[in-house]
Simulated assay, not measured.
Amino acid sequence: MSKSDPQTMATIFVTDSPDAIALKVRRAVTDFTSEVTFDPEGRPGVSNLVTIHAAAASIGVEEAVAAARGLDTAAYKALVSEAVVLRLTPIREEICRLRGDRAHLEAVLDRGARAARELAAPLLHEVRQRVGFC
């Protein structure tokens, strides 16, 4: 998983469905050692999954490794998927709800535009005076 990789399968998006998240995590590159450990230099793929799991579950890396004790990497990927889905589902649902409420979005944009104009007005007035447009 990588936020800088141009491949969409290498990035979990907030708006991804639970199935898409599970597929991306399942296909994440790991190594041939089945034990889950945290070793960023020696096992970067598995360590990345541990970091994602820890962040999604709001736990430390050590706790994530302890939760994986006795699991092979395939089973651990399922655990990571579950943690990510649990963390992102309420956010994804709220984004979908907001995207469906066009009137609300228009009102938010209008308020923002008015606030920006109010903030910019004094500076714009000063610039116009200095340039000689007033």
Rank of each mutant, 00 (worst) to 15 (best):
R111K: 11
V85F: 00
L49G: 01
R99I: 00
R87S: 08
A116V: 11
L88E: 03
G132F: 07
R87L: 05
L71R: 14
L123I: 15
K77V: 12
D101W: 05
S17K: 00
Q129D: 13
A22I: 02
L71E: 13
D19T: 10
A56E: 03
A115E: 15
K77E: 05
V80I: 05
R27L: 12
Q129C: 12
V80A: 02
A78F: 07
Q129M: 14
R130C: 08
A120P: 04
A103T: 13
A20H: 00
I91V: 15
A74Q: 10
R97V: 01
A68N: 00
A28V: 06
H104E: 13
R69D: 15
G45R: 09
T15A: 01
R87A: 13
S17F: 06
C134S: 12
P90C: 11
V80E: 01
E63S: 12
A22Y: 05
K24V: 00
A116Y: 08
S2V: 14
V61K: 08
H53R: 08
L71Q: 15
E82D: 15
G45M: 11
R117P: 01
S4K: 13
R97F: 03
L119Q: 10
L119Y: 05
A83K: 06
T37G: 05
S17Y: 02
E118Y: 02
L86V: 07
L23F: 04
R114T: 09
G132W: 11
A75P: 02
R87P: 02
C96R: 14
D31G: 14
F13A: 06
S2F: 13
I12V: 15
A56D: 04
T51V: 09
L119P: 02
A107R: 13
H53K: 09
E62H: 08
A107L: 06
S81P: 11
V46K: 02
A22E: 13
I12M: 12
G112A: 11
R87C: 03
R130W: 05
V61G: 01
Q7Y: 06
S34F: 07
A56C: 06
G60K: 06
A22F: 03
G112P: 01
E41T: 10
V65K: 05
P6E: 05
I52F: 08
A64F: 09
A107H: 06
G70T: 03
V29G: 06
R69Y: 10
E35P: 02
K77R: 13
G70H: 04
Q129A: 12
A113Y: 09
R99Q: 08
I95P: 07
H53E: 03
T89G: 02
S81G: 14
V108W: 01
L86N: 14
T33Y: 05
A54M: 10
A75D: 13
A83M: 03
C96G: 14
E41H: 05
A75T: 04
R92W: 07
R114D: 11
R128G: 10
A66V: 03
R102H: 03
S47R: 00
F38G: 00
A68G: 02
N48R: 14
L119I: 10
A107F: 01
L109Y: 06
A56Y: 00
V80S: 01
